[in-house]
């Protein structure tokens, strides 16, 4: 080493302790973790105040018992499942269709760049979206079965109502991300507001729209398999009925059919997505 490279006032010793964070940040971090642990312990105790630990200790035995009853699945039951499976597909597809149709105007009202009024209409649209999103489709189904009576219609409407929030949220985010210059260029030609939507914004959000609708359809297939538990039609009705009479081999068959349906729908939506994009 050339001596000239060393500045005259260079320190001869260096600190042998190096820390990643400042002491204050470390303290805050430790305190945060400690609080989380304390909260966890407290919640655990509150939650399990009424737990019968005898049952819990028995759980592995119960599981083994259940498993042995379910095996082998009842293949003879399979043909009987085809009609409910068709219903399930219809609930998911029609529900997605209805949800998308209702979500599109909501999304345009909620997006900052297309809403007619940021002060009055946008909050209402956002409220619709958050309400629809907060309530699970099974709860929607529970309500709708009470209102409309058991059947496919309640299932379709439940799926549609839940889809509004999901599709609406993702779609309005896509609308807000559109390229403002393309919109400006269309405005500059003297286009009306409706024409601006049609020529500048819709073409830009179309790919996102298809992807979102397909994604939701995929989720809706899963959700519609269980709606029958509360009476909203589909294969879930059979599941409920089989559990009620403790026909475990039938339950196993139903679960396998549901699993297969979910996998097939995932495959289909992946293929369609590839074809469209």
């Amino acid at each position: 080493m050339k001596p000239t490279l060393v500045p005259p006032d260079a320190p001869t010793t260096y600190a042998d302790v190096w820390t990643f964070r400042t002491p204050r940040a470390r303290l805050a971090l430790w305190f945060g973790w400690l609080a989380l642990v304390a909260l966890f312990v407290y919640c655990w105790q509150v939650m399990n105040a009424d737990t019968m630990w005898v049952f819990v200790a028995d759980a592995p035995g119960q599981a083994a018992d259940l498993g042995s009853r379910m095996w082998p699945p009842s293949m003879a039951y399979l043909p009987e499942l085809m009609a409910p499976l068709w219903d399930t597909l219809n609930i998911a597809t029609l529900g997605t269709l209805g949800g998308v149709i209702m979500a599109v105007p909501v999304a345009f009202l909620a997006a900052r760049n297309t809403t007619p009024s940021r002060v009055w209409i946008r909050p209402v649209a956002l409220l619709v979206i958050v309400t629809s999103r907060s309530i699970n489709s099974l709860i929607w189904a529970l309500l709708l079965v009470a209102i409309l009576g058991p059947g496919l219609l309640a299932g379709v409407v439940a799926i549609a109502l839940r889809s509004i929030g999901f599709v609406g949220k993702l779609l309005y985010e896509a609308i807000e991300e559109t390229d403002a210059r393309q919109v400006e260029a269309i405005s500059a030609t003297g286009a009306s507001a409706a024409q601006r939507l049609d020529y500048a914004i819709v073409p830009q959000v179309m790919p996102a729209f298809w992807a979102i609708a397909l994604f939701r359809w995929d989720i809706n297939i899963r959700e519609s398999t269980i709606l029958g538990l509360v009476g909203a039609g589909g294969i879930g009705l059979k599941l409920q009925a089989s559990i009620n009479v403790l026909a475990w081999p039938q339950v196993a068959t139903i679960l396998l059919v549901i699993l297969a349906t979910v996998l097939v729908s995932e495959w289909v939506s992946a293929r369609v997505r590839q074809a469209i994009m």
Binding site: E184, Y199, A200
Partner: peptide, 10 residues
Amino acid sequence: FQEYALVERL
């Protein structure tokens, strides 16, 4: 426009 500002997907 500077960056053409065509509607790319039309």
